[in-house]
Protein backbone atom coordinates (compact mmCIF):
# COMPACT_ATOMS: atom_id res chain seq x y z
CA UNK A 1 0.00 0.00 0.00
CA UNK A 2 2.75 2.35 0.98
CA UNK A 3 4.68 1.34 -2.17
CA UNK A 4 1.67 2.14 -4.28
CA UNK A 5 1.42 5.53 -2.67
CA UNK A 6 5.02 6.36 -3.40
CA UNK A 7 4.62 5.14 -6.99
CA UNK A 8 1.69 7.48 -7.47
CA UNK A 9 3.75 10.26 -5.98
CA UNK A 10 6.66 9.49 -8.29
CA UNK A 11 4.44 9.45 -11.35
CA UNK A 12 2.95 12.80 -10.43
CA UNK A 13 6.34 14.30 -9.86
CA UNK A 14 7.56 12.82 -13.13
CA UNK A 15 4.62 14.22 -15.06
CA UNK A 16 5.01 17.68 -13.59
CA UNK A 17 8.68 17.64 -14.49
CA UNK A 18 7.80 16.67 -18.07
CA UNK A 19 5.09 19.31 -18.16
CA UNK A 20 7.66 21.89 -17.07
CA UNK A 21 9.78 20.90 -20.10
CA UNK A 22 12.60 19.61 -17.94
CA UNK A 23 14.61 16.81 -19.52
CA UNK A 24 14.47 13.33 -18.07
CA UNK A 25 17.97 11.94 -17.59
CA UNK A 26 19.09 8.28 -17.42
CA UNK A 27 19.41 8.12 -13.63
CA UNK A 28 16.11 9.86 -12.93
CA UNK A 29 13.10 7.90 -11.81
CA UNK A 30 10.75 7.19 -14.71
CA UNK A 31 7.62 5.08 -15.13
CA UNK A 32 8.44 1.63 -16.44
CA UNK A 33 6.12 2.19 -19.40
CA UNK A 34 7.91 5.41 -20.27
CA UNK A 35 11.18 3.48 -20.29
CA UNK A 36 9.75 0.68 -22.43
CA UNK A 37 8.07 3.10 -24.79
CA UNK A 38 11.35 4.94 -25.30
CA UNK A 39 13.33 1.74 -25.81
CA UNK A 40 10.81 0.74 -28.45
CA UNK A 41 10.94 4.07 -30.23
CA UNK A 42 14.69 4.72 -30.01
CA UNK A 43 15.65 1.20 -31.01
CA UNK A 44 13.22 1.26 -33.92
CA UNK A 45 14.86 4.49 -34.96
CA UNK A 46 18.35 3.00 -34.58
CA UNK A 47 17.43 -0.12 -36.54
CA UNK A 48 16.00 2.08 -39.29
CA UNK A 49 19.30 3.90 -39.69
CA UNK A 50 21.15 0.61 -39.86
CA UNK A 51 18.79 -1.24 -42.20
CA UNK A 52 18.67 1.94 -44.28
CA UNK A 53 22.35 1.40 -45.07
CA UNK A 54 21.28 -1.41 -47.37
CA UNK A 55 19.10 0.19 -50.08
CA UNK A 56 21.53 3.10 -50.37
CA UNK A 57 24.68 1.09 -49.83
CA UNK A 58 23.56 -1.00 -52.80
CA UNK A 59 24.53 1.86 -55.07
CA UNK A 60 27.95 2.70 -53.68
CA UNK A 61 29.53 0.17 -56.03
CA UNK A 62 27.49 1.48 -58.99
CA UNK A 63 27.44 5.23 -58.39
CA UNK A 64 27.75 6.97 -61.76
CA UNK A 65 30.65 9.31 -60.97
CA UNK A 66 33.50 9.37 -58.49
CA UNK A 67 32.06 12.42 -56.80
CA UNK A 68 28.67 10.74 -56.36
CA UNK A 69 30.41 7.62 -55.12
CA UNK A 70 32.34 9.53 -52.47
CA UNK A 71 29.28 11.51 -51.36
CA UNK A 72 27.14 8.39 -51.12
CA UNK A 73 29.80 6.60 -49.10
CA UNK A 74 29.95 9.53 -46.69
CA UNK A 75 26.18 9.62 -46.47
CA UNK A 76 25.71 5.95 -45.75
CA UNK A 77 28.54 6.17 -43.24
CA UNK A 78 26.63 8.97 -41.49
CA UNK A 79 23.56 6.73 -41.28
CA UNK A 80 25.64 4.07 -39.59
CA UNK A 81 26.88 6.77 -37.21
CA UNK A 82 23.29 7.78 -36.43
CA UNK A 83 22.55 4.15 -35.65
CA UNK A 84 25.44 4.22 -33.23
CA UNK A 85 24.29 7.38 -31.36
CA UNK A 86 20.81 5.96 -31.12
CA UNK A 87 21.89 2.57 -29.82
CA UNK A 88 23.97 4.43 -27.25
CA UNK A 89 20.93 6.52 -26.28
CA UNK A 90 18.84 3.35 -25.93
CA UNK A 91 21.54 1.74 -23.80
CA UNK A 92 21.14 4.50 -21.21
CA UNK A 93 17.72 2.99 -20.55
CA UNK A 94 19.23 -0.25 -19.28
CA UNK A 95 19.29 -2.47 -22.34
CA UNK A 96 22.34 -3.68 -24.29
CA UNK A 97 23.01 -3.33 -27.99
CA UNK A 98 23.15 -7.14 -28.25
CA UNK A 99 19.65 -7.38 -26.82
CA UNK A 100 18.42 -4.71 -29.21
CA UNK A 101 19.94 -6.49 -32.20
CA UNK A 102 18.45 -9.74 -31.01
CA UNK A 103 15.03 -8.11 -30.91
CA UNK A 104 15.54 -6.89 -34.46
CA UNK A 105 16.46 -10.38 -35.61
CA UNK A 106 13.50 -12.06 -33.92
CA UNK A 107 11.11 -9.48 -35.34
CA UNK A 108 10.16 -8.20 -31.88
CA UNK A 109 11.56 -4.81 -32.82
CA UNK A 110 10.73 -3.02 -36.08
CA UNK A 111 12.52 -0.64 -38.41
CA UNK A 112 11.11 1.93 -40.82
CA UNK A 113 9.06 -0.02 -43.28
CA UNK A 114 10.15 2.16 -46.18
CA UNK A 115 13.46 0.32 -46.32
CA UNK A 116 11.59 -2.78 -47.41
CA UNK A 117 11.30 -1.26 -50.87
CA UNK A 118 14.09 -1.85 -53.38
CA UNK A 119 16.41 0.82 -54.80
CA UNK A 120 16.14 -0.15 -58.45
CA UNK A 121 17.76 2.75 -60.28
CA UNK A 122 20.20 5.54 -59.52
CA UNK A 123 17.26 7.92 -59.26
CA UNK A 124 16.12 5.96 -56.22
CA UNK A 125 19.20 7.24 -54.42
CA UNK A 126 17.99 10.74 -55.22
CA UNK A 127 14.45 9.96 -54.10
CA UNK A 128 15.55 8.32 -50.85
CA UNK A 129 17.82 11.20 -49.93
CA UNK A 130 15.27 13.81 -50.86
CA UNK A 131 12.03 12.25 -49.58
CA UNK A 132 13.02 9.75 -46.93
CA UNK A 133 15.55 12.05 -45.34
CA UNK A 134 13.13 14.99 -45.57
CA UNK A 135 10.50 12.95 -43.79
CA UNK A 136 13.09 11.94 -41.22
CA UNK A 137 14.09 15.56 -40.67
CA UNK A 138 10.50 16.72 -40.19
CA UNK A 139 10.06 14.02 -37.58
CA UNK A 140 13.44 14.46 -35.94
CA UNK A 141 13.31 18.25 -35.67
CA UNK A 142 10.25 17.79 -33.49
CA UNK A 143 12.12 15.15 -31.49
CA UNK A 144 14.88 17.61 -30.61
CA UNK A 145 12.43 18.65 -27.90
CA UNK A 146 11.56 15.15 -26.78
CA UNK A 147 11.48 14.72 -23.01
CA UNK A 148 14.29 12.18 -22.72
CA UNK A 149 17.63 14.04 -22.63
CA UNK A 150 19.95 11.57 -24.41
CA UNK A 151 17.43 11.08 -27.22
CA UNK A 152 16.89 14.83 -27.66
CA UNK A 153 20.64 15.47 -27.80
CA UNK A 154 21.19 12.67 -30.33
CA UNK A 155 18.51 14.28 -32.50
CA UNK A 156 20.26 17.65 -32.56
CA UNK A 157 23.39 16.07 -33.96
CA UNK A 158 21.54 13.83 -36.39
CA UNK A 159 19.38 16.62 -37.80
CA UNK A 160 22.44 18.58 -38.90
CA UNK A 161 23.70 15.66 -40.95
CA UNK A 162 20.29 14.75 -42.31
CA UNK A 163 19.92 18.14 -43.90
CA UNK A 164 23.12 17.51 -45.88
CA UNK A 165 21.64 14.15 -46.92
CA UNK A 166 18.42 15.72 -47.99
CA UNK A 167 20.29 18.24 -50.13
CA UNK A 168 22.40 15.55 -51.80
CA UNK A 169 19.24 13.59 -52.65
CA UNK A 170 17.47 16.61 -54.04
CA UNK A 171 20.59 17.55 -55.98
CA UNK A 172 20.58 14.12 -57.66
CA UNK A 173 16.93 14.60 -58.63
CA UNK A 174 17.58 18.12 -59.90
CA UNK A 175 20.52 16.96 -62.00
CA UNK A 176 18.39 14.19 -63.49
CA UNK A 177 15.57 16.62 -64.27
CA UNK A 178 18.03 18.86 -66.11
CA UNK A 179 19.32 15.90 -68.10
CA UNK A 180 18.09 13.72 -70.95
CA UNK A 181 14.54 12.44 -71.28
CA UNK A 182 15.52 9.02 -69.98
CA UNK A 183 16.96 10.67 -66.88
CA UNK A 184 13.80 12.69 -66.28
CA UNK A 185 11.76 9.51 -66.70
CA UNK A 186 14.03 7.76 -64.23
CA UNK A 187 13.52 10.55 -61.70
CA UNK A 188 9.74 10.60 -62.17
CA UNK A 189 9.56 6.82 -61.85
CA UNK A 190 11.51 6.97 -58.59
CA UNK A 191 9.19 9.66 -57.22
CA UNK A 192 6.17 7.58 -58.23
CA UNK A 193 7.46 4.62 -56.27
CA UNK A 194 8.77 6.47 -53.19
CA UNK A 195 6.07 9.11 -52.67
CA UNK A 196 3.41 7.07 -50.93
CA UNK A 197 5.80 5.02 -48.80
CA UNK A 198 7.31 8.35 -47.66
CA UNK A 199 3.88 9.55 -46.51
CA UNK A 200 3.41 6.28 -44.67
CA UNK A 201 6.64 6.89 -42.75
CA UNK A 202 4.74 9.15 -40.36
CA UNK A 203 2.64 6.22 -39.21
CA UNK A 204 -1.12 5.76 -38.92
CA UNK A 205 -3.55 8.66 -38.66
CA UNK A 206 -3.67 10.14 -35.18
CA UNK A 207 -6.98 8.46 -34.36
CA UNK A 208 -5.56 5.02 -35.13
CA UNK A 209 -2.09 5.41 -33.68
CA UNK A 210 -1.54 2.87 -30.91
CA UNK A 211 1.14 4.68 -28.93
CA UNK A 212 0.39 8.30 -29.71
CA UNK A 213 -1.72 9.62 -26.85
CA UNK A 214 0.52 8.44 -24.02
CA UNK A 215 3.66 9.43 -25.95
CA UNK A 216 2.32 12.94 -26.39
CA UNK A 217 1.45 13.20 -22.71
CA UNK A 218 4.96 12.15 -21.77
CA UNK A 219 6.32 14.47 -24.45
CA UNK A 220 8.23 11.63 -26.08
CA UNK A 221 6.39 12.69 -29.20
CA UNK A 222 5.93 16.40 -29.62
CA UNK A 223 3.74 16.62 -32.71
CA UNK A 224 1.16 14.23 -34.08
CA UNK A 225 1.66 11.93 -37.06
CA UNK A 226 -0.82 13.86 -39.18
CA UNK A 227 0.69 17.25 -38.37
CA UNK A 228 4.15 16.06 -39.31
CA UNK A 229 2.90 14.39 -42.48
CA UNK A 230 1.17 17.59 -43.55
CA UNK A 231 4.34 19.59 -43.06
CA UNK A 232 6.25 17.09 -45.16
CA UNK A 233 3.70 17.16 -47.97
CA UNK A 234 3.62 20.96 -48.02
CA UNK A 235 7.34 21.26 -48.47
CA UNK A 236 7.93 18.25 -50.75
CA UNK A 237 5.20 19.24 -53.21
CA UNK A 238 6.82 22.61 -53.75
CA UNK A 239 10.25 21.05 -54.12
CA UNK A 240 8.89 18.59 -56.70
CA UNK A 241 7.22 21.35 -58.68
CA UNK A 242 10.36 23.48 -58.63
CA UNK A 243 12.24 20.90 -60.68
CA UNK A 244 9.37 19.72 -62.87
CA UNK A 245 8.41 16.49 -61.10
CA UNK A 246 4.75 15.51 -60.83
CA UNK A 247 3.61 14.20 -57.45
CA UNK A 248 1.69 10.97 -58.14
CA UNK A 249 -1.52 11.98 -56.41
CA UNK A 250 -4.53 13.07 -58.52
CA UNK A 251 -6.25 14.43 -55.40
CA UNK A 252 -3.41 16.74 -54.48
CA UNK A 253 -4.64 20.33 -54.36
CA UNK A 254 -3.75 23.53 -52.55
CA UNK A 255 -6.34 24.37 -49.93
CA UNK A 256 -6.39 28.14 -49.55
CA UNK A 257 -8.52 28.01 -46.44
CA UNK A 258 -6.30 25.60 -44.54
CA UNK A 259 -3.11 27.01 -45.99
CA UNK A 260 -1.99 23.45 -46.73
CA UNK A 261 -2.13 20.93 -49.52
CA UNK A 262 -4.98 18.43 -49.40
CA UNK A 263 -3.83 15.04 -50.51
CA UNK A 264 -5.35 11.69 -51.43
CA UNK A 265 -6.06 8.70 -49.21
CA UNK A 266 -3.11 6.61 -48.12
CA UNK A 267 -3.36 2.92 -48.92
CA UNK A 268 -3.15 1.54 -45.38
CA UNK A 269 -3.59 -2.02 -46.59
CA UNK A 270 -0.33 -1.67 -48.46
CA UNK A 271 1.24 -0.19 -45.33
CA UNK A 272 0.06 -3.12 -43.19
CA UNK A 273 1.20 -5.64 -45.77
CA UNK A 274 4.74 -4.22 -45.80
CA UNK A 275 4.94 -3.67 -42.03
CA UNK A 276 3.80 -7.22 -41.39
CA UNK A 277 6.57 -8.65 -43.53
CA UNK A 278 5.37 -8.86 -47.11
CA UNK A 279 7.05 -5.89 -48.73
CA UNK A 280 9.35 -6.56 -51.68
CA UNK A 281 12.55 -6.77 -49.60
CA UNK A 282 11.61 -7.52 -45.96
CA UNK A 283 13.20 -10.94 -45.96
CA UNK A 284 16.37 -9.84 -47.72
CA UNK A 285 16.90 -6.82 -45.46
CA UNK A 286 16.64 -8.87 -42.30
CA UNK A 287 18.58 -11.84 -43.71
CA UNK A 288 21.37 -9.48 -44.77
CA UNK A 289 21.65 -8.05 -41.27
CA UNK A 290 21.46 -11.45 -39.59
CA UNK A 291 24.12 -12.91 -41.85
CA UNK A 292 26.53 -9.97 -41.42
CA UNK A 293 26.04 -10.23 -37.66
CA UNK A 294 26.61 -13.99 -37.62
CA UNK A 295 29.59 -13.83 -39.95
CA UNK A 296 31.09 -11.20 -37.67
CA UNK A 297 30.73 -13.28 -34.50
CA UNK A 298 34.27 -14.67 -34.68
CA UNK A 299 35.66 -11.14 -35.02
CA UNK A 300 33.80 -9.93 -31.95
CA UNK A 301 34.96 -13.00 -30.05
CA UNK A 302 38.56 -12.41 -31.13
CA UNK A 303 38.38 -8.83 -29.97
CA UNK A 304 37.01 -9.83 -26.57
CA UNK A 305 39.63 -12.57 -26.19
CA UNK A 306 42.43 -10.19 -27.12
CA UNK A 307 41.24 -7.56 -24.66
CA UNK A 308 40.92 -10.16 -21.91
CA UNK A 309 44.52 -11.23 -22.54
CA UNK A 310 45.70 -7.60 -22.37
CA UNK A 311 43.96 -7.15 -19.05
CA UNK A 312 45.50 -10.34 -17.72
CA UNK A 313 49.07 -9.41 -18.71
CA UNK A 314 49.90 -6.83 -15.99
CA UNK A 315 48.81 -9.30 -13.28
CA UNK A 316 51.06 -11.99 -14.69
CA UNK A 317 53.99 -9.62 -14.84
CA UNK A 318 53.46 -8.62 -11.24
Amino acid sequence: MKDNMSLVGNEEKFQSKVDAEEKVEPKDWMPEKYRQNLIRQISQHAHSEVIGEQPEGNWISRAPTLERKAILMAKVQDEAGHGLYLYAAAETLGITRDELIDRLHTGASKYASIFNYPSLTWADIGAIGWLVDSAAIVNQVSLQNTSYGPYARAMVKICKEESFHQRQGYNIMMTLMQGAELQRDMAQDALNRWWWPSLMMFGPHDAESAHSAQSMKWKIKRRSNDELRQQFVDQAVQQAQAIGLVVPDPDLVWNEQRGHYDFGAIDWEEFQRVVSGNGPCNRQRLAHHVSAHQEGAWVREAMAAYEAKRRAVPAEVA
Binding site: E53, I60, Q77, A80, Y87
Partner: peptide, 20 residues
Amino acid sequence: SEWMSRAPFLEEDIALSNVA
Protein backbone atom coordinates in the same frame (compact mmCIF):
# COMPACT_ATOMS: atom_id res chain seq x y z
CA SER B 1 33.39 0.06 -49.67
CA GLU B 2 31.84 -3.35 -50.29
CA TRP B 3 31.87 -3.84 -46.51
CA MET B 4 29.26 -1.17 -45.92
CA SER B 5 26.40 -2.84 -43.95
CA ARG B 6 28.37 -6.11 -43.83
CA ALA B 7 30.98 -5.41 -41.15
CA PRO B 8 31.14 -7.47 -37.92
CA PHE B 9 29.72 -4.55 -35.93
CA LEU B 10 28.51 -1.04 -36.54
CA GLU B 11 31.72 0.76 -35.58
CA GLU B 12 33.49 -1.19 -38.31
CA ASP B 13 30.91 -0.22 -40.93
CA ILE B 14 31.95 3.31 -40.12
CA ALA B 15 35.69 2.71 -39.86
CA LEU B 16 35.96 0.64 -43.03
CA SER B 17 34.01 3.17 -45.00
CA ASN B 18 36.22 5.90 -43.60
CA VAL B 19 39.28 4.19 -45.00
CA ALA B 20 37.42 3.44 -48.23
